[in-house]
Design a protein around this nucleic acid. Structure first.
Lengths: 110, 110
DNA sequence: GCACATTATGTAGATTGGCTACATGAAGCC
DNA sequence: GGCTTCATGTAGCCAATCTACATAATGTGC
C-alpha cells in the first residue's frame, strides 16, 4: 500500500479504533495494524500528531496515566468525536462509491 | 465530498477516464463529473498539473490539435499507463478493503 | 455590435497532512 | 550488561491538491 493512500482518511481510522474504548497512542498503532491485517504500519510521526490534531478538534480527550513507572496518554472519544466518526463513515461510503464507479472497467461502449 | 478526499487516487481516476479513449483536459473534467454523478468537480488547477505529471511519468501521451480555432491538447493512455491503471485498480481494492475493515462497526466484543 | 456564459488551457503560491529521521527513557528478557 | 519492546514525541521535508488568477476564442441572447 502506497504511503499516502490513507491521506484524508486517517482521522476516520483512528476514531473508529477508539470507538471500542479508550486506548493510548501505542495501542492505537497496534490495534490499527491488527485490524488492517498488517497493512497499516503507522509511523509514530503520523500517529501522534494526528491524535493531537483530533484533540485540538475536540474529537478526542486525553489523560495521562503512569503505569508501572511508564507514562501513558490514553485517548478517548468525545461526543463530538462520535458524531465526527458517523460523518466520516458516510463520507467514506460516498467516496468509495464514486471511485468504484469511475474505476469500474467496461462501462464504455468500447 | 471534502475537496482533498481524492488525494492519492486522482491518478487512478484520470487514467480510468482515459481508458475508453483519448480526451482533452476539459473533456476529462466533464467525463469525471459525469461518471461520478456530479460529485467530482475537479478544479483546473488540479487537473492540468495532474495530466502533466502523468505525462512526465510516461502514463499518457499528449498531442496538440486545433479545432475551430481553438487549441486542444488531447491525452491518450500509453502501454505503461494501462499497466499503471491495472496496478492502481488493485491497490484501490486493497486500500478500500482495509478501510472498510477498520471502519466497520461492531467488530468489538462490546 | 455588445455582454455574458461556456469552452479551453494553464501558472503561482498556499496549504496540509503524512513521512523520515531523530531524540528520550523505562521495562523485560537473556 | 546489552538488546528488544514499549512508549511518547518533535523538526523538517515533500508531494499533491487547492485557490485564485490570467488568457483567449466561441456561442448565445438581445
Amino acid at each position: 500500500m502506497k504511503p499516502d493512500a490513507v491521506r484524508g482518511h486517517l482521522d476516520a481510522l483512528i476514531l473508529a479504533t477508539l470507538e471500542k474504548g479508550a486506548l493510548h497512542g501505542y495501542a492505537v498503532m497496534q490495534a490499527l495494524r491488527e485490524s488492517s491485517g498488517g497493512a497499516l504500519e503507522l509511523p509514530t510521526g503520523s500517529l501522534y500528531p494526528a491524535l493531537r490534531r483530533l484533540e485540538r478538534a475536540g474529537y478526542v480527550r486525553s489523560e495521562w496515566r503512569m503505569v508501572g513507572g511508564r507514562r501513558r496518554r490514553t485517548y478517548e472519544l468525545t461526543a463530538a468525536g462520535r458524531r465526527a466518526l458517523d460523518t466520516e463513515r458516510s463520507e467514506w461510503r460516498d467516496f468509495a462509491a464514486v471511485v468504484e464507479g469511475v474505476l469500474r472497467p467496461g462501462t464504455a461502449s468500447s
